[in-house]
Design a protein around this nucleic acid. Structure first.
Length: 399
RNA sequence: GGUGAGAUAGUCAAGUGGCCAACGACGGCAGACUGUAAAUCUGCUCCCUAUGGGUUCAGAGGUUCGACUCCUCUUCUCACCA
């Protein structure tokens, strides 16, 4: 039992610091039924979860299975500073209401994966607000600038002459202080969080919490492009609230190479099963597309239902293999004759009439499955199915 | 506080008075080929019913027939010195 638990927890991890601590925690849980705490921090600025986040959540769920209480930390205080990613030096400040509604949708999504009864939602504003200037200075005196600059993205930005705000130094410190306050036993996060996660250990030592948290890092899930991490701002994500059709389609559009990565981090299939598939593809006995479809089915079913996943698959076949028109497409209507370019913009499948013209010129625009060339075309009364490229559809009724 | 350098489209980055809606790279979109994969090839990539017009090169003024390019001020960044 203990061994099984340890294997499950180790599965897919990028790095574990202080694995002995985890072993001890699990041992006492199995021997004495004593629970322990696992902390994970979440940023309330992005209310929509995508599959990248679920890598962490699934790991937390595993911990819950083996006696952990999850400290689901909402970084409502630290969000105001912004984690130094270098991308968004200035963050827009969210209003209380925005944060509240973000958190709400965040947690409802998270509880699709996590056990609600074994989760404590905590807000770091609750203790960081009262830290005060003195506390903050005390906190910041525990670390040197040189040490701070060891953090990879700081040193990169520093040598690349991109600005670093002093406030950004505070982010890791405050995140670490969260661990001091919560007396966390384990903290998990992405590999990109390594510095911040270790800060928790460091500060727990300085503040003499007696015990230092174990740190478990999950790899960052690549987005659809297979290169950059999955994120909403890069628009390469699969959201857990995505429609079944979208979800299925997006998974099928990833590269074969990336598919294995998704298997490793998102599938519930065992490692041996995955290896079997892999060798099957290598010796040509299994078509890679079939394997990818199975992955897409599994994931789509998890966030929707088996039935919806099957429907999505059928729909996909229909649209792409047989190049028919999808079942559900957005409908629009307008009065009088419409110029085709304008119509495409109005139906939200082209950003501007200039772009629409270019696409028409290139033969990317179809009306009722027929390619069109005439960019002066006027649509008379009737119903049309407009299409741009392979995946943008709209139905337009001209009155 | 002082001195110097810099700010150009989604990103990086050329352009130092007209040939500039602005080289190039990446990204993105589309076409061909496919398995809506990868790789490859091709075209496009500010807006506008367009062989034309409009608005752009941090912001505000100015010089000039004409400014991304020159001058002044402002904002922001970086480096060195303190």
């Amino acid at each position: 039992m203990l061994e099984e638990a340890l294997n499950e927890i180790n599965r897919g991890c990028a790095e574990i610091i202080d694995n002995e601590r985890i072993e001890k925690l699990l041992t006492t849980y199995f021997d004495e039924g004593k629970t322990y705490t696992v902390k994970a921090g979440f940023d309330p600025t992005a209310p929509d979860l995508h599959l990248g986040h679920t890598v962490l959540l699934q790991k937390l769920a595993t911990f819950q299975k083996y006696g952990a209480r999850v400290q689901f930390l909402i970084g409502d205080f630290t969000a105001a500073i912004g984690d130094p990613t270098g991308k968004s030096a200035t963050r827009k400040v969210l209003s209380k209401d925005e944060i509240q509604s973000n958190i709400k949708s965040y947690t409802t999504q998270a509880f699709k994966i996590l056990d609600k009864d074994k989760t404590d939602i905590v807000y770091n504003k609750d203790w960081l607000d009262s830290l005060g200037t003195v506390g903050l200075i005390e906190l910041s005196s525990t670390l040197t600038v040189a040490r701070m600059l060891e953090r990879d993205d700081f040193s990169k930005r520093y040598s690349a002459n991109t600005p670093i705000a002093v406030s950004e130094f505070l982010y890791p410190l405050l995140q670490g202080y969260d661990s001091v306050h919560l007396k966390s036993d384990v903290e998990i996060g992405g590999t990109d969080q390594k510095f911040n996660l270790l800060m928790g250990r460091q500060l727990q030592k300085v503040y003499e919490t007696k015990k230092q948290q174990a740190v478990l890092m999950m790899p960052i899930l690549e987005g659809l492009d297979g290169v950059q991490k999955m994120s909403k701002s890069l628009n390469n994500y699969i959201g857990v609230t995505d429609e079944a059709n979208d979800m299925f389609g997006k998974i099928l559009s990833i590269s074969d190479e990336l598919m294995w990565r998704y298997f490793e981090l998102l599938s519930t299939k065992s490692i041996t099963d995955i290896d079997l598939l892999k060798s099957g593809v290598e010796d040509g006995s299994i078509h890679p597309k079939k394997v990818k479809e199975d992955l897409a089915l599994e994931i789509t079913a998890r966030y929707h239902s088996e039935e919806e996943a099957q429907n999505a698959k059928a729909e996909f076949e229909k649209v792409h293999a047989k190049s028919q028109i999808p079942t559900d497409i957005d409908e629009f209507s307008c009065d009088g004759e419409v110029w085709i370019a304008k119509a495409l913009v109005d139906c939200n499948i082209e950003p501007s009439t200039s772009q629409a013209r270019r696409d028409i010129k290139q033969g990317a625009v179809k009306i009722n499955q027929e390619k069109i060339q005439d960019m002066q075309l006027q649509l008379k009364a009737g119903e049309y199915v407009l299409q741009v490229g392979k995946r943008k559809f709209a139905k337009l009724r001209v009155n």
